[in-house]
């Protein structure tokens, strides 16, 4: 009898675990789209970052291609990707804070700062590794500025 109830409890627990893992991926295509944008940034930043850290040899052409991509991604019109109800209170799979919807003007300004930093990287990436390293700081600062204000911490 004891055994049965503990098996039942284990079953419940695993259901709960499965439940949480399902909640990791949003059902909301808008959330999926903006997550994809972040992945595009991360992939291209990886090329630049490896050179900045000295893990990969500096390659002006590859760096320029990655920087061009970041500029293109920063120009995607995201206005349809942030519908009402896609904050972390309504949808636990996202870390987007409700404050975004209360401060659209500021979010826009921070987005513009990122676009500017991307253009600065585009100019720097092909020059030399020192210029690239300098532009990484501005680009990272632009990412962090928005994440600090509008993204919930990881648990």
């Amino acid at each position: 009898m004891m055994k049965k109830s503990s098996i039942f409890a284990a079953g419940l627990l695993s259901l709960a675990v499965v439940g949480t893992s399902i909640a990791q991926d949003s059902e909301n295509p808008a959330v999926k789209a903006r997550t994809s944008i972040m992945q595009l940034y991360a992939f291209n930043l990886g090329t630049l970052g490896a050179m900045a850290k000295g893990e990969a040899e500096y390659d002006a052409e590859a760096a320029t291609r990655a920087a061009n991509n970041i500029v293109v991604v920063s120009q995607i019109d995201q206005s349809a990707m942030w519908p009402a109800g896609s904050d972390n209170v309504s949808d636990p799979s996202t870390r987007a804070l409700p404050a975004i919807w209360e401060n659209f003007a500021d979010v826009g300004a921070k987005g513009q700062a990122l676009a500017d930093a991307a253009v600065a990287m585009q100019a720097a990436a092909g020059q030399d590794v020192e210029a690239l390293k300098g532009a990484m700081g501005q680009l990272g600062g632009a990412c962090s500025a928005c994440h600090k204000a509008y993204r919930a911490p990881e648990n």
């Binding site: 970052g49 990484m136 994440h147 600090k148």
Partner: peptide
């Protein structure tokens, strides 16, 4: 670590928060 302390980028190219 040094890259994180200049740009805030983690090794996965997520960025610092908080």
């Amino acid at each position: 670590i040094a890259e994180y302390l200049i740009s805030g980028f983690t090794p996965d190219y997520d960025s610092a928060g908080g």
